[in-house]
Computed example of a mutant assay.
Amino acid sequence: MAIKSGDKVTKTKNSKNTIPGIHRIAAIQMASGPYVSANLSEAERLIEIAVSQGAKLIALPEYFAIMGLKDTDKVAAREKEGSGPIQRFLSKTAKKHQIWLIGGSVPLATENPDKVRNACLVYDDKGKQVARYDKIHLFGFDLGNEHYKEKNTIEAGEEVVTVDTPFGKLGLSICYDLRFPELYRAMGEVDIIAIPSAFTETTGKAHWESLVRARAIENLCYVLAPAQGGYHASGRETHGNSMIVDPWGVVQDRLPRGSGIVISSINTAYMQSLRKSLPALKHRTL
Rank of each mutant, 00 (worst) to 15 (best):
E201M: 09
L220I: 11
P181I: 07
T203H: 06
Y184T: 04
K80P: 12
I99Y: 01
S242Y: 04
P256G: 02
T12S: 13
D253G: 01
A186H: 11
V245L: 03
I58V: 08
Y176W: 15
T153F: 14
P279Y: 03
F64Y: 09
V245W: 00
K56D: 06
K74F: 12
R132W: 01
K80Q: 15
G204E: 08
R179V: 12
A119G: 02
I47V: 09
H147W: 10
S32W: 04
V9K: 04
S197N: 11
M271N: 02
A50E: 03
S265R: 13
G68H: 10
I136V: 06
T110W: 03
N267Q: 09
V51S: 08
L138Q: 00
L101V: 13
T12N: 13
Q252H: 09
S41M: 14
G157A: 07
A225F: 00
T202P: 02
T268G: 09
I195T: 13
N39T: 10
R215H: 02
P256V: 14
I261K: 00
P181F: 10
G240N: 03
K115Q: 11
K151P: 06
E146I: 14
G127T: 04
A43M: 04
G84W: 08
I192S: 00
P61Q: 08
V161Y: 04
V122N: 01
G235A: 03
S234T: 00
E158I: 13
L170H: 08
E237W: 10
A43Y: 03
G240W: 06
H207E: 14
K135H: 15
T202S: 12
L178V: 12
Q87S: 04
I99C: 07
Y231M: 09
H147C: 09
G230N: 01
A214F: 14
V251C: 01
D142L: 10
H137D: 11
E159M: 07
H239C: 11
K115M: 07
I244M: 00
L286C: 13
P166K: 04
L170Q: 07
S32N: 01
H232Y: 02
L121G: 04
R117S: 06
Q29V: 06
E79R: 00
K92G: 11
A186C: 13
L108W: 06
I266A: 02
K135R: 06
L224W: 04
A227E: 07
N112D: 12
F199M: 15
L183E: 08
G230A: 02
I22P: 05
A50L: 01
L224P: 00
Y133V: 00
L172H: 00
A2H: 09
I19P: 06
N14V: 09
P85H: 11
I217R: 12
V106K: 07
L101K: 12
L69M: 15
N145M: 08
L121M: 05
Q228C: 02
H23R: 05
T203L: 12
I49D: 11
L46C: 08
A26D: 05
K70E: 15
A119Y: 01
S234P: 02
I136D: 02
